[in-house]
Structure formats: C-alpha cells, structure tokens
C-alpha cells in the first residue's frame, strides 16, 4: 500500500506536465484546427528563457517564470499572426507541416540564442514531506504538491472561463465553425491569437515544472507532447475535458504498470511499461475512434 502510494505521488509532476501540454494542444486544435507539433519546442523555448532568468539574472523562479511566459506568449502569438493567419487557405495537412517546419526553426534558434550548453534549472520549492502508512515511509516532494496546486488552479480557471465567460463562448463557437463564428461578429483572429498565446503560456508552465525534475534540452518536452497527442485522441478532441482526463490517465497507467511489474516480481517488465500503455491506448482508440469521451460524428459525403 505504501509502495503504491509512493508510485502515485511520484507521478504527480509528469501528470501535471502532460495535462497542461494537452490543454495547450487541445485549445489550438479546436481553434486553428491543426495538431501543433511545435508545442514541445515552443514550451522548451519558454523553459530556456526561464533558465536564463535563473542563471544569468539570478532571479527567483517566481520572477523568471512570468518572463518566460511573456516571451513564449509573444512567440506563439507571432506564429499565429505571421504564419497561420496568412496560411488560412492551406489545408489541414499543410498546417500540420507548417508546425513541423516550426520545430526545425525553433530547434535551430535555441542554440543560436541560448548557446549549446544545457541550462541549470530549479524546482519551485525544496523539501519533502514524509508520513507513515502501515508502518512504512511515504514521501512526496513539496514541489510536486505546488505543481499540482498550480495545475489545478490554472486548469479549473480555464474550464470555468471556457464554460461561463463570453470569451469561452467565442472559443467554443470558433471551434465549432470558424466562418459562421466570424459571420456572427466574433473576431476569430483575436480568438485564435489568444489560443496560441495560451498554448505558449501553458507550455512554458509545463516545461518549467518538467525542468525541475528532468534535464532541460531542446527535445525534452517531446515525450510529453507525444503523450498529449495520444491523450487527445484517447479522450476525444470533441470536448475540452476529455483530453485532459486522458492526460492524467496515461502517466498514471504507465507508473501503475511499473508498480504491477515490481509487485509481481518481474522488474524487467517495467521497461516495457510505455509499450504496454500505448498499446492499450491504441486498442481503445481502434474500438472507440471518437475517443473515450467523444461524440460520434456523422460523415457527410
């Protein structure tokens, strides 16, 4: 029991990172109708800005994070205004390929701007909490709890805004049909720009959390991005909450497989955990193509 608790508590930060990235990808998918493959590198760019704030300006992480967010938001909005708004007549595949081109651009730009060396990073707070369960130690870092709190606040606020604010209504209208939304007086340009900005901000937040537990690098968010895409189709892109719930499930399932492998006395199975989890996800998607929480759409000829 204590071991299981330790496993679950150890998954908190990856779950938060995946959930935030998934939210960012979902919001762009809904408003710009493309899968943003550059989400990972945009987030990494934000993390590099945060790292320069930490290392070169000796700021605290609470000051460096907003700076990183502002830069990433500016970059994401610039991408929307300069590229996506002009490429309106590019088809869906073309848009995806543009985001792939963006990966190359940013991957090339990061070493040019920040240098080749991987930056040092810090967690939000230091320290651990320990308590006893069944006479065994259960440990959780304070940082993980802070990450969880931030993620909970941010995601709750976003969902509330999406559901109840005028902006949320405009986003949902744009997601359902951009042209009709524009006809009804919604400034869809502003809506997509805000979505991109939000995606940049969420990505930077996620990357900063991830930077506390993993080595920062150009591709260090790619795995989370892949998880986020899978979460997107596992939960179904039709809703906002589906992907986010799936985003919590994937890292959790991954660590549970590791836990089961260890409990059953076959620790060598644990390196197969991602294979098993992804395989399961694909099987579910095969039988429920619209996702766990999706709505069935009827294809028109």
């Amino acid at each position: 029991m204590a071991y299981l608790l330790n496993v679950i508590l150890g998954t908190i930060v990856p779950m938060c990172v995946t959930a935030l990235v998934t939210m960012a990808i979902t919001i762009i998918f809904k408003t710009s109708s493309t899968t943003n493959f550059a989400q990972g590198v945009i987030s990494a760019f934000g993390a590099y800005v945060v790292a320069s704030g930490l290392n070169k300006l000796n700021l605290s992480i609470w000051l460096a994070l907003p700076i990183g967010i502002v830069v990433a938001v500016a970059m994401a909005v610039a991408i929307d205004v300069l590229i996506f708004r002009r490429g309106r007549y590019v088809n869906a595949l073309g848009k995806q390929i543009i985001t792939m081109g963006l990966i190359s651009i940013i991957v090339g730009a990061i070493p040019l701007i920040f240098g080749m060396q991987a930056p040092q990073f810090r967690t939000f707070v230091e320290g651990k909490l320990s308590f006893l369960v069944d006479g065994q130690d259960v440990t959780v870092t304070v940082n993980a709890l802070v990450c969880l709190a931030i993620t909970a606040v941010v995601l709750t606020a976003l969902f509330l805004l999406l559901q109840f604010s005028k902006w949320g209504l405009s986003v949902r209208a744009t997601a359902s049909n951009e042209y009709v939304a524009g006809m009804l007086g919604i400034n869809t340009h502003v809506i997509t720009a805000i979505s991109w900005g939000l995606a940049g901000a969420l990505g930077t937040l996620a990357a900063t959390m991830n930077g506390g537990i993993n080595q920062v690098g150009v591709y260090f968010m790619t795995n989370y991005q892949v998880n986020a895409f899978l979460a997107g189709i596992l939960g179904g892109f039709a809703t906002f909450y589906g992907p986010v719930i799936a985003a919590f499930l994937i890292p959790l399932a991954n660590n549970l497989v590791v836990y089961l492998a260890n409990v059953m006395g076959k620790p060598e199975l644990s390196s197969w955990s991602l294979v098993i989890v992804y395989g399961l996800a694909l099987v579910i998607i095969f039988f429920k193509p619209q996702g766990l929480f999706g709505k069935r759409t009827v294809k028109k000829v």
Partner: peptide, 22 residues
Amino acid sequence: ENPVIITFVSGILVVLVVMFYP
C-alpha cells in the same frame, strides 16, 4: 561551426514552401 543554422533555414524553407508553393 554552427550546424543549427541549417536546421533553422530548412524549417523556414518548409514553412515558406507550404504557404506559398504548395
């Protein structure tokens, strides 16, 4: 000395081709 410039330029190339020369 700066191989990343090639990555950078190839990215720009991809974006430009898709936008203006599909």
